[in-house]
């Protein structure tokens, strides 16, 4: 394997991504977790650029860091609890069982081994050699191909996705604007339970129930 200059940004991005994931998983606050996720998303977008897929870069930044990330920031902000009530023991790696760690390790090893053993064939080498001359400048042809591919081969999927997104938007708006008065509800519920239990105990034959 030859050394290539593009390996430098790739390595930097990979390290940054992994660091961001680490920070995201171990952050003290939900918001921190989310903004580290956003940095990771942007970095993944640049990974796409390195992987010769600038259109994915655009989509990644537009949809992921522009849309999803904002949504998750909102979620984090709106559901953030008062720090007094947060059980400090459940933050971070505390309560992580050995099983989980073992699963994680085994999974990583498994997948890596599987991937490496799968791509260790001649087809991979040939493909890499065939594409080694390519320079990252323009993929207009590929994007046109992509557009036709999407609309000819995946039209149903795209329409389905459109409906899915529409449903998701409408459903989430409906869910989000629904107001629930928790205290009133619970009072009513408790009152109902109380009356029901009274009714049951006052029924004939319920008092002298014999334990078998």
């Amino acid at each position: 394997m030859e050394f290539s200059l593009t390996l430098i940004p790739f390595t930097l991005l990979a390290v940054f991504i992994l660091a961001a994931i680490y920070k995201s998983l171990t952050a003290e606050k939900t918001m921190q977790s989310v903004y580290w996720l956003i940095f990771m998303l942007v970095a993944v977008g640049f990974i796409f650029l390195l992987a010769n897929s600038e259109i994915l870069f655009a989509y990644q930044l537009m949809v992921y860091s522009g849309g999803i990330a904002v949504l998750m920031l909102f979620a984090g902000l709106l559901t953030e609890q008062d720090e007094l009530f947060i059980d400090s023991s459940i933050v971070g790696f505390i309560k992580t069982s050995k099983t989980q760690v073992l699963i994680f390790i085994f999974f990583a090893i498994d997948v890596l081994a599987l991937l490496l053993s799968s791509i260790n064939g001649s087809a991979y080498e040939e493909t890499v050699l065939a594409n080694s001359e390519y320079t990252y400048t323009d993929s207009a042809h590929q994007i046109k191909l992509f557009a036709s591919y999407l609309w000819n081969g995946f039209a149903e999927v795209i329409i389905l996705l459109g409906f899915l997104l529409l449903t998701a938007i409408l459903g989430s708006v409906k869910l989000a604007i629904r107001e629930t008065d928790l205290e009133e509800l619970s009072d009513e519920y408790l009152a109902r339970i109380a009356t029901t239990s009274e009714d049951i105990s006052s029924l004939p034959g319920m008092e002298d129930e014999v334990e078998v």
């Binding site: 699963i103 085994f106 999974f107 498994d110 997948v111 081994a113 599987l114 053993s117 799968s118």
Partner: peptide, 13 residues
Amino acid sequence: VVVILSFFVLENY
């Protein structure tokens, strides 16, 4: 999933 994957890996090797 890990168990199933392990089968594949072991089979691959």
